[in-house]
């Protein structure tokens, strides 16, 4: 394991001086490295980065997101993906090339207020994100409950190789679907959903703490003991 030095930082704070590589949320001025966000700074031989604790969701191609249909036109749906921009889902990508514009058929597929699980297939600095729902598991979300967390904390909720999410799923008998944009869908028994919501909120509020996985495990097992 590489030696990693960590500290809490706020924007503008000097993290380190020397010959490092800067990765994310860091600016370099000569040989000084400054944080650009509130977060946890990591200094290792691999470089310097800040894991932010707050911030907007910036889409990346191939991200899986949960979005809400908020509007539609003749050719596409407009989707709120909890980001700076609305995303678009083109009618052609859903109905195929032969599609001819028709309000009825658009609304029959997805109506306003529907949640969808979708993939970002295109996004750059010049245009709004484009979504696709072709792929296994993608499309309209028929049931379940939604909980929202700061998009900056999604990686923590997933955990190393999905360890955190697996821990919560097995203790609550819920299936969790995580949108990279901070929206999480829970499907399962009502008491499981309630417990999963609490666990997810706990991950969010304690994302910066040492021993988070252990804390979550003990929270979940305490609940199980009380039940049995």
């Amino acid at each position: 394991m590489p030696e990693v030095e960590r500290k809490y930082v706020t924007p503008g704070e000097l993290i380190a001086e020397g010959n490092y590589k800067s990765t994310s949320n860091v600016i370099r001025i000569r040989n000084k490295f400054y944080a650009t966000k509130v977060g946890l700074a990591e200094i290792s031989h691999e470089g310097i980065r800040v894991i932010p604790l707050t911030g907007p969701y910036i889409p990346r191609v191939d991200d899986l997101v949960i979005g809400k249909i908020v509007d539609f036109s003749a050719f596409s749906w407009e989707v709120d993906i909890n980001s700076c921009f609305f995303a678009y889902l083109s009618a052609q990508s859903v109905f195929g090339k032969e599609f001819s514009p028709d309000r009825e058929s658009l609304l029959k597929k997805f109506s306003i207020g529907d949640l969808i699980y979708a993939k970002v297939v295109a996004y750059d600095r010049t245009r709004n994100p484009l979504l696709s729902v072709s792929g296994p598991g993608l499309g309209r979300i028929p049931k379940g409950e939604v909980v929202r967390i700061s998009p900056a904390k999604v990686p923590r909720l997933i955990g190393k190789k999905g360890s955190m999410i697996k821990t919560i799923e097995s203790a609550t008998n819920c299936k969790l679907i995580i949108g990279q944009n901070g929206i999480i869908l829970m499907v399962g028994p009502p008491d499981g959903i309630l417990l999963a919501t609490q666990a997810i909120k706990m991950v969010e509020s304690e994302a910066h703490l040492a021993g988070l996985t252990k804390n979550i495990q003990s929270f979940l097992s305490k609940y199980k003991e009380e039940q049995s």
Binding site: K68, I69, V70, D71, D80, S111, I112, G113, D114, L115, I141, K143, G144, E145, V146
Partner: peptide, 10 residues
């Protein structure tokens, strides 16, 4: 948007 769109599920 101009006003809140409540999710259908919710």
């Amino acid at each position: 948007k101009k006003s809140i769109v409540v999710e259908q599920l919710r």
